[in-house]
Design a protein around this nucleic acid. Structure first.
Length: 493
RNA sequence: GUCCCCAUCGUCUAGUCAGGUCCAGGACACCGGCCUUUCACGCCGGCAACACCGGUUCAAAUCCGGUUGGGGACGCCA
């Protein structure tokens, strides 16, 4: 019987949840769900200077929006300071660590010198073998010190089997003694992280490849702490089109999960996009329901090579990775309308154009309208943008159709109100009747039907494109159609 | 500079571990066509890649070596 799977997502609250973090959370979550294990959210806030409350809120909200839930936590690393310090003292006591009195300035100078001389950069072990007398003298003198881990004097290599990358090994010679406790007594990430993972009984550490070198050193910590090693899986990083690591600092909002929420992405569609960045099922399937994805997911099928988040700044057509938009569009037009309706409702409510009747007597109309217009939309924001005229009289007539379909034909100023009169007289405001009258009207004024049809579409919806005009008319309804047609002259002012 | 990792269409990727079925498959994007009152959707078709060099082999995208390129790490950050 194997141990139940336990994974964790441990963000440091120093900024919003970005694409890379969300993807790491998603992969951990999928793995936990697939194996009936537990997902633990642990906020790594030991760097008090950089951690912020708003960042924690942002991360939690981001995960909730994505639908990535957790079974334990959020735990806060800062609440386990005692455990971290105890572990450090234990390592000090049993000879796995030692006090180092080198000052930051000395170390910086040595590192700069090494970098300049283009030789190996690393701690030289100056304090590794301080005599007892020296040690107590310095401590008695109140000289500040950090605690360093003492890398064992061994030959050969240190390594582990990564589920994604395979065997990873590093020569002991490459490892230098690393700091585990700051001079102010605060334990550092490398140690805290291991102590927490041991306490939380983490079985699988799934994180980015930027942690690969940390893992090697943490292996020594597990050993010194006499703890069992978890399984490691280092995911490929997400890079920008210039192949640089994405970050809030250099990329801004476009990499924030919040950006996608605020731009009308469907949470599941975004997950579906993210999972394809570095993972594939092995066949041609690209769209997955939640359960299908959990079922199909496996760490072994994660790619080794980094994936590019393919957005282009100031692209007039694609405001983010075209694939992300394509996946969103797919869900937008194929998902059950009754699942989409609440999301559209939220947008309408936010715009103050929501009507209670859409939930009751006009529910069928509301759903029908969503279904009628969604195939042209990219995000749910389009329902209050391009689709606004279906829900409100307060909509803008776009400049392009205004010029192309209205101003270009001055006669429409009179024709469209006249057509409105025709509609008034119609016994049956139906698909066939509105079409018949419209074509007849075009014939009577001797223009191609398209001129009238496109003119009406522009006046009634404000848009250059849309569904079949007669579907639009009967959906928006006779009264509003007539009113908008009669208002045509104002477009010429 | 040192160490580690990676390398298939513009992008995400399948195929690599078990060499032949791959003159390399799918998706996005792009181009063309059909449909059409517009624009989409949908459908049909097209463009487009095994980084390079050498080796092993009857046979290499696949195995081995090297080169080049890219990334990550090298903190009293996480």
């Amino acid at each position: 019987m194997t141990k139940p799977v336990r994974v964790r997502f441990p963000p440091s609250p120093t900024g919003y949840l970005h694409i890379g973090g969300a993807r790491t959370a998603l992969f951990n979550w999928l793995f936990a769900r697939k194996h009936g294990g537990s997902m633990i959210l642990r906020i790594e806030d030991t760097d008090a200077e950089r951690s912020s409350e708003s960042s924690i809120t942002g991360i939690v909200e981001g995960l909730k929006w994505l639908g990535i839930d957790w079974d334990e936590g959020p735990y806060f690393q800062s609440e386990f300071g005692n455990e971290h310090r105890t572990a450090a003292q234990q390592l000090l006591a049993n000879g796995h660590a030692y006090r180092c009195f080198c000052t930051k300035e000395e170390l910086d100078a040595k590192r700069d010198a090494a970098l300049a001389a283009k030789t190996k950069v690393g701690y030289d072990g100056a304090c590794r073998n301080l005599s007892e007398a020296d040690l107590s003298a310095r401590q008695a003198a109140g000289q500040p010190s950090v605690i360093r881990f003492k890398v064992p004097e061994r030959t050969g290599t240190l390594g582990y089997d990564d589920v994604i990358l395979g065997r990873i090994e590093t020569n002991y010679q490459e490892l230098d003694d690393f700091v585990i406790v700051r001079s102010n007594g605060a334990p550092l990430y490398l140690l805290c992280n291991v102590v927490d993972d041991i306490r939380d009984r983490i079985t699988h550490v799934i994180r980015g490849q930027d942690h690969k070198d940390n893992t090697i050193r943490q292996l020594l910590l597990y050993e010194a702490l006499a703890a069992e090693l978890p399984t490691f899986a280092h995911m490929p990083l997400t890079l920008d089109p210039k192949r640089a690591k994405i970050s809030k600092r250099s990329h801004g909002e476009i990499v924030a999960v919040q950006f996608y929420r605020d731009h009308g992405f469907l949470p599941w569609a975004f997950n579906n996009y993210l999972v394809l960045l570095g993972w594939s099922p092995g066949d041609d399937q690209e769209f997955f329901s939640r359960s299908e994805l959990i079922d199909a997911f496996s760490l072994e099928r994660i790619s080794k090579a980094p994936a590019i988040f393919n957005y282009h700044k100031n692209d007039p057509k694609f405001f983010t990775d075209p694939k992300a938009i394509a996946i969103n569009e797919h869900y937008l037009r194929t998902m059950p309308v009754d699942e989409l309706a609440p999301l559209v409702q939220a947008e309408l409510v936010a715009e103050n154009i929501w009507r209670q009747s859409y939930e009751h007597e006009d529910k069928a109309w509301f759903h029908h309208t969503i279904d009628l217009i969604r195939s042209r939309f990219h995000t749910v924001k389009d329902f209050i943008g391009a689709g606004r005229a279906y829900f409100s009289d307060d909509f803008v007539v776009d400049a392009k159709p205004l010029n192309k379909n209205i101003l270009k034909y001055p006669d429409l100023e009179n024709w469209l109100p006249a057509l409105a009169d025709e509609f008034t007289r119609l016994a049956d405001f139906s698909l066939t009747e509105t079409e018949r009258v419209t074509r007849q009207f075009a014939d009577s004024v001797q223009v191609k039907p398209g001129v009238i049809i496109n003119g009406v579409r522009t006046v009634v919806t404000g848009q250059l494109a849309g569904p079949s005009l007669f579907d639009i008319l009967i959906t928006i309804g006779r009264d509003k159609v007539i009113q908008r047609l009669r208002n045509t002259p104002r477009l010429y002012q």
